[in-house]
Computed example of a mutant assay.
Amino acid sequence: MQYLEFKISCDEHYREILIAELAEVGFDSFLETDEGFDAYIPEDSFDRNNYTQVIAQYADVADLSVVESKMDKVNWNEEWEKHYDPITVGDQVYVRASFHNPRTEFPYEIQINPKMSFGTGHHATTFLMLSHQLGIDHRGKRVLDIGSGTGILAIMAHKLGAASIEAFDIDEWCVENGNENFDLNGMSAVRMGKGTVREVNPQGLFDIVLANINKNVLLDEMEVYSHLVKEGGFLLLSGFYEHDVEDIAERALAVGFVEKAIETKDQWAALVMEKV
């Protein structure tokens, strides 16, 4: 099978958004670069019309340039070894791939072998969510991870002592990769579901709900979240810019949450909300 390769140069602030948009139209692998990212899609599943619509939407605002080429099937493990570096969250969390050496001086080590660039910890929103999790007692708690991606936040919850974890994502690729990462981190009893929060329809109340998605989805699903978080429980939100905080917080307040903490990084933001 041959792949099409698109070397995309873009404004850094639009990188994650473009990756998400291209994933929605069939691109299945991404490698971040200094200039932007490389995107890959099997030639037989490429829909040029859908691709063109995405590029046209961001061409001007994201300062886009694209170089398209064709390539043979890629050894993605080899490619990730070339491009994927470990990350740290303070002196507490070390996120690495299985081909990196462990570092025992960190209290929490997470292994992630990502098949695409969602949730590796490199993006500011994932970093911020991990940072917020460190400040919340997960011991013995019931945790829900919405839009789980690689499963990194669910894995963090497990490392922090959560008693019960549920996770799901809308993308089949993420579900497969998330389950592989769960196995790497001693979570074989946890299996990632597929669908939106309304489709999966989690049952009962949760002590902690994690949602690192995007502004529009968070606003649309906020009332659903309000029925999932128990009184005194926490809702952790990210996937939006600093200038969107007011809209997100206002919507959360309207359905029974109060703001407890906020962190920002590289113009992205993450909120901790408490159910009252």
Rank of each mutant, 00 (worst) to 15 (best):
C10S: 12
N113F: 03
E172Q: 13
C174L: 11
D34G: 08
E263I: 02
E16W: 15
Y84A: 04
V175Y: 12
G204H: 10
L236T: 04
H138K: 02
L184G: 00
I262P: 01
I170F: 08
L271T: 14
L271A: 08
G90Y: 07
S9I: 07
Q57W: 01
K215N: 10
T125F: 04
K70H: 10
I55E: 06
D60Y: 10
V209Y: 02
V200D: 10
R198Q: 12
H243T: 13
A20Y: 09
K215T: 13
E166G: 01
N214C: 11
A59L: 15
S117A: 15
L4M: 08
E180Q: 09
L130N: 00
E172G: 07
Q111F: 09
E166R: 14
H243R: 10
M116C: 07
H158V: 04
T104W: 04
G233R: 00
H132G: 00
A167I: 09
F27K: 05
Y40W: 10
S45Q: 07
T33R: 15
S188T: 13
M1C: 01
N177T: 13
L218D: 03
L18T: 03
A20C: 14
E16Q: 15
D72R: 02
H83P: 04
Y58R: 06
G90C: 13
F234D: 03
E12A: 11
I55S: 03
A167H: 09
T150A: 15
L153M: 12
S226T: 12
I152S: 11
D247V: 12
